[in-house]
């Protein structure tokens, strides 16, 4: 135990928490924005899978991580708009649209990977891990001054470009939601669409913008998975991060800061799991921790919410 604690109190451990949290943060931001617009996108998992695949493939074929990233973002946005089309135009239950995207995101990406890379011969499994070299990945960034700070420098510096983006986007998304007309419209549409449309705000357009934003975030998340977290795409590599993000959104009270902190909690749990296996414990014992924490978190969140409602009721009664 003491041994474990010693291992945890290292900068490397904190560094890994941040790294592991990055894709969850992207997905959480995606969940937050659509929720603000009044609906749920449970297809984040599938969107990230598609983005991860297209990112790694385009990076390989263009020999440029930059174009890979762009492709991942485009994939995320286009697929999310397709989701919007089914949900808003054809009136498909948005939850079912999400399920369909997740289904396709699992086997469908493998199909595309096999077809595009022609790796079908004799291999039941395919991945792009063999294609992506370090130079085709999104680069890590060393921050000159900060990296020399003892302990903290090692925690903060040396991360992947997209890891910094993840935290930057927490700020940017928050600004978008609370400081721009677009954000105001998104929040208005989510809370009272009648109020929004009564003053000329197009509810439909705002919903499309919101789902496209969630696609963009999933594009980042997917690109991070296949071009930073791992070198290359492999089957089911997103491993439930899209679902965890839904929980992080709820636990974080639907806000960017809260969502980020919740994502970091999951990151911590996962990093802990990795450490467990490093000291010889079964990683399978640690791996379910983030999922269990999610359920517990949701319960606590629900209890607090119910209490609040009760208090408001009795307050209204007391006024008289």
């Amino acid at each position: 135990m003491a041994n474990l604690l010693k291992m945890l109190a290292t900068p490397e451990f904190f560094w890994s928490i941040i790294r592991i949290s990055a894709p969850i943060i992207f997905a959480t931001l995606a969940a937050i924005v659509v929720e603000k617009a009044g609906f749920a996108n449970i297809g984040l998992e599938g969107l990230m899978m598609f983005a991860a695949l297209s990112g790694s493939l385009v990076s390989y074929y263009t020999k440029s991580w930059f174009w890979g990233l762009i492709a991942a973002l485009l994939t995320g946005v286009l697929m999310s708009l397709l989701m919007g089309f089914f949900a808003f135009k054809l009136k498909t239950d948005i939850i079912l649209v999400g399920i369909a995207i997740n289904m396709m995101g699992s086997g469908g990406t493998l199909f595309l990977c096999k077809v595009i890379t022609n790796l079908t011969e004799g291999k039941p499994m395919a991945s792009t891990t063999g294609l992506i070299t370090k130079s085709l990945c999104i680069p890590d960034i060393n921050i000159p001054l900060i990296s020399s700070i003892p302990f903290l420098g090692k925690v903060i510096s040396g991360h992947n470009l997209l890891t910094y983006f993840a935290f930057l986007f927490c700020l940017l998304t928050s600004i978008m939601l609370y400081k721009t007309p677009l954000g105001l419209n998104i929040r208005a549409v989510g809370e009272n669409p009648n109020a929004a449309s009564s003053v000329g705000v197009s509810v439909l357009n705002i919903k499309y913008v919101a789902i496209a934003f969630s696609g963009l975030m999933c594009g980042f998340g997917g690109a991070f998975m296949s071009m930073a977290y791992a070198q290359g795409w492999s089957l089911d590599m997103v491993a439930g991060r899209g679902f965890i993000a839904l929980a992080a959104q709820a636990m974080g009270g639907g806000e960017c800061l809260g969502g980020m902190l919740s994502a970091l909690v999951f990151g911590f749990a996962q990093a802990l799991g990795i450490k467990f296996s490093a000291i010889g414990l079964d990683s399978n014992l640690a791996s379910p921790i983030p999922y269990a924490i999610t359920i517990i978190g949701l319960v606590i969140f629900a209890l607090i919410r119910n209490n609040k409602v009760k208090k408001q009721h009795s307050a209204a009664a007391l006024k008289n």
């Binding site: 400081k179 007309p181 105001l184 929040r187 009272n192 109020a195 009564s198 003053v199 705000v201």
Partner: peptide, 27 residues
């Protein structure tokens, strides 16, 4: 039945759909 957005401020509700901006970007 009021056409208001509860979590927005009074001022934000006032200008919804015709938001004044600073340099075209921020409210």
């Amino acid at each position: 039945h009021f056409m208001l957005v509860p979590s927005l401020s009074v001022a934000e509700n006032m200008v919804l759909g015709m938001v004044p901006t600073k340099s075209g970007t921020f409210i």
